[in-house]
């Protein structure tokens, strides 16, 4: 399957994300609060762009089945946005600020691909976020401290429900397919942008 090959080829970047002090700090609970607050605020910008990119995929889907699948994923990200709002409130995060450079780089990339390229390319650019977060959640779950203030993050992304969304998007990558070199280019770009997103949150302290 294309999606599993793309993931395997990018596995070293996924491991860098897992071992990143920001992610490790979530598991250990030692992450400083301002870094997490910055991350939550930036994630709101990211999720909004993600929803817009899915909506563009609905608009440009090549057939009914993929239109339905993108619509299901759009609903899921809408739910995540809702969850995010209550999360932000609890963490006393101001969602009014501006996107950081690492956030804009990522959202601009996603929206450019979703606007100008095929839905297959958009799916390849969007899949890393879903699969990476599901994988990070699953990797951290057995080692994360239950009393880490960030344990809810680990629970959200290690859930079967989130894994199913990642799988649904990967199924679209596999079904829509296309030139694998181009798909890899987008997939690996998104993976690097994920790493930069964690880096930027840590640097914000």
């Amino acid at each position: 399957m294309i999606s599993s090959r793309l993931w395997s080829r990018c596995r070293p970047i996924a491991e860098q994300c897992r071992d990143h002090p920001f992610v490790q700090g979530i598991a250990s609970g030692r992450l400083e609060r301002p870094a997490f607050q910055h991350y939550v605020a930036q994630d709101a910008f990211f999720l909004e762009a993600f929803a817009r990119a899915y909506a563009l995929c609905v608009a440009r889907a090549p057939d009914r089945e993929s239109m339905r699948a993108f619509k299901g994923l759009l609903d899921a990200v809408d739910d995540e946005l809702e969850l995010h709002r209550s999360y932000a409130e609890r963490w006393e995060v101001d969602l009014v600020g501006a996107p950081a450079e690492a956030t804009s780089a990522y959202t601009d990339f996603l929206l450019r691909v979703a606007s100008l390229e095929s839905p297959a390319h958009a799916a390849a650019a969007m899949a890393p976020c879903m699969r990476l977060y599901a994988w990070l959640g699953q990797q951290l779950k057995p080692v994360a401290l239950r009393d880490s203030p960030y344990y809810e993050w680990v629970e959200t992304y290690s859930s079967d429900e989130f894994d199913a969304y990642a799988a649904a998007l990967e199924a679209l990558v596999d079904r829509l397919a296309g030139d694998e070199a181009a798909l890899y280019s987008h997939y690996s770009t998104a993976m690097r942008l994920e790493l930069a997103f964690f880096e930027s949150s840590l640097a914000s302290r």
């Binding site: 563009l56 608009a59 889907a61 239109m67 619509k71 609903d75 809408d78 946005l81 809702e82």
Partner: peptide, 28 residues
């Protein structure tokens, strides 16, 4: 129409995402 509503969400404020997604769902 379903596709047009997909494009509508691109320019919508996040507060309206849920309503627009509901529309897309209904048309689908």
């Amino acid at each position: 129409l379903t596709r047009a509503w997909g494009r509508l969400l691109v320019g919508a404020p996040p507060a309206d995402f849920r309503l627009i997604a509901a529309g897309i769902g209904a048309f689908s």
